[in-house]
Design a protein around this nucleic acid. Sequence first.
DNA 1: AACTAAGCGAGACGGTACGTCCTGTCTTCGA
DNA 2: TCGAAGACAGGACGTACCGTCTCGCTTAGTT
Lengths: 207, 207, 207, 207
Amino acid sequence: MQSRSSAPRTGRPRSAEADEAILAATRAALVDLGWSGLTLGDVATRAGVAKTTLYRRWAGKNELVVDAVAALFDELELPDRGSLAADIEIVVLQFAAILSRPEAKTALMAVVAESTGDAALRDRIRSSIVDRQKHLVTQGRARAQARGELPVENDPETAARGTDLIFDVIAGAVVHRCLVSSKPVDTDWAGDFTRLLLNGLTGVSPA
Amino acid sequence: MQSRSSAPRTGRPRSAEADEAILAATRAALVDLGWSGLTLGDVATRAGVAKTTLYRRWAGKNELVVDAVAALFDELELPDRGSLAADIEIVVLQFAAILSRPEAKTALMAVVAESTGDAALRDRIRSSIVDRQKHLVTQGRARAQARGELPVENDPETAARGTDLIFDVIAGAVVHRCLVSSKPVDTDWAGDFTRLLLNGLTGVSPA
Amino acid sequence: MQSRSSAPRTGRPRSAEADEAILAATRAALVDLGWSGLTLGDVATRAGVAKTTLYRRWAGKNELVVDAVAALFDELELPDRGSLAADIEIVVLQFAAILSRPEAKTALMAVVAESTGDAALRDRIRSSIVDRQKHLVTQGRARAQARGELPVENDPETAARGTDLIFDVIAGAVVHRCLVSSKPVDTDWAGDFTRLLLNGLTGVSPA
Amino acid sequence: MQSRSSAPRTGRPRSAEADEAILAATRAALVDLGWSGLTLGDVATRAGVAKTTLYRRWAGKNELVVDAVAALFDELELPDRGSLAADIEIVVLQFAAILSRPEAKTALMAVVAESTGDAALRDRIRSSIVDRQKHLVTQGRARAQARGELPVENDPETAARGTDLIFDVIAGAVVHRCLVSSKPVDTDWAGDFTRLLLNGLTGVSPA
DNA sequence: AACTAAGCGAGACGGTACGTCCTGTCTTCGA
DNA sequence: TCGAAGACAGGACGTACCGTCTCGCTTAGTT
């Protein structure tokens, strides 16, 4: 998470409980207060921890919230439903379920907004959250190719472009539906979207 | 923008210059300082205006920034390029051009994040920004139907669902590409995306 | 009060009612809010008058309050009780009665405090409030001399010194008793004080 | 000054330097700006201290100024000059010397004015400033009785009434001369006043 | 068992921004 | 020309957090 291996050999070791208590308190505070209402002093109080302890581990609000929210996305997985359409639909619904939680909703866009002027934060978001989901696309695509639903792509660079595009379309559409249009991502919408994407992918493949 | 017609007949009228100066100052401050660094006191100073004048017109940072950024989106338009593919591509590139401005980049996600816990702000964003772009989709779709590129949809409710879906896909994908993946929306990417979307639309239409 | 004789020949004449309404509102506000809580905006509202009207007549809070309070002191008078002792006692009690009013209590010391750095205000206080009381001393002294209770003072400069001293002692002691010691000026205290002063005056006269 | 003994065992202790720096800055600001021009923000800046530090120790302008000015009165003392007349004269001159300082002049009346509507402030003034001077009267009186200049007073309640009266007369007269009449307390005036008071005291004693 | 080094809670610290209030001036309309 | 209404620039208010610091105490691993 932060310091990993570099030598802190002597002295009292950091409390492992504190870490988890702080992250849990952060999520709770996000639910209660939203991003802009969240204060580190309040998080520390909720966690039963001194502010010093918190600052010893995280540089600030942004970093703390990224870590607190990242865990939510670990529950995403891609069970094999037997067809590309079913796979797309299930991942869309799972993703939307996470986004419907208030702590994710308020925090995710906010840290992305902060990251527009902060490259280090952008990297942290990418490594902690975004990249951990991207393998779902890779995996789903590989399965579809194995089933013969999608043509095999031999050029790795072209394959990467395709993966990125699909990821932007899925994640972007779901986020926009949830947070901007603020309409529900139910099975109707997921079905419409899946049909659109599937047609797009099985038509002429990207050049 | 705010008070519209209701009767403030007496007293000194509000300065129209001040309004524009404040919005311009807000955009400038966003460029210099980003969302989280932006201060209403600083905006007031830049605009050559007292803080009270600012608070008399806007309830807070969120509302002010929505109005300041909304103007940027008014330059979006849809010239008729003769084909649906060309129309999609041009609107994607225009939208990305706006999002690449630092004032839009930092502000847009931030106010959306704030809006997750504030219905009034959500409405303000929708009416000031989102809905003003949605007509581009409607218009492009009508042209494509006139050209015979897309089937005519008779049920108005189904048509609305389709418009919403297309809008979420386009806007979501472009925003995600720009702000989360933070990769450029160049003609290559726009081409790939357009191909994907076009295939999706001209295949089986949404139920 | 302010403009006196200089020619306001043309245009709408100033409302005479407004003047008295403002002074009354000022006194009422002093009772409710005290000196530091009093604001000119509030006075204007209470008087049913625009702030402009108020500023057209008085330069600020200090000047307004001096005028508002000065009227209270006009009720002081010196009925002839037949002896110097009785005369002193009655004036002490009258003065204390005025000082026990909340509007006088809070305002008087405050404007004196302000006047320490403002010569114009000091003059205004002297001419509006202080000098109007000083004749009571002169008058009482003259009566006492006529009765033979006090020796006649021939040198006018020495007489003035004596008057000033007596005035400072009476006014100072009463004010200090009321506002600093915050104990009542009842007939007991007035009697003690009168005895002390009378002994002081009828002993060896000031050099 | 404020918290005295109650147990704040943990946490960083309050800076003792800050206390003195703030009081000194307050006195300096009073000299430069006067009571009404004095700003807590300005005091904090002058003291090199944050506004919060100031508000942590004092509730507001009034309390701060009382403490800042109280120290000035600690220099009052009563050297034995061998006669009651000399003792009165010296204390009058000392008191006037303090009142002639701009920081005392502007502040003293102002806090008394504020205290008319604030019992807590009145107590603070009494305990911090007034009562610390009253022992001068007691002491001077005792010496005069020892010398045989004044009759011994056996009833302690009558003695207290006398002390209060003398104190109100001395303090009141000097303050009134300085601040209201705004004439100098020189040896001439001090002589006249001492003669008056001495005659008053050595004549018939208060009932 | 004593020493040492870091972690810990508490809370004060110098700062910055907040959103409100009041000041004294101005601009409009109607009397 | 005055008056009411109210917007204006300016500036202080007292509060809330920020991120740092200084305390005294606790908790290891090392001598």
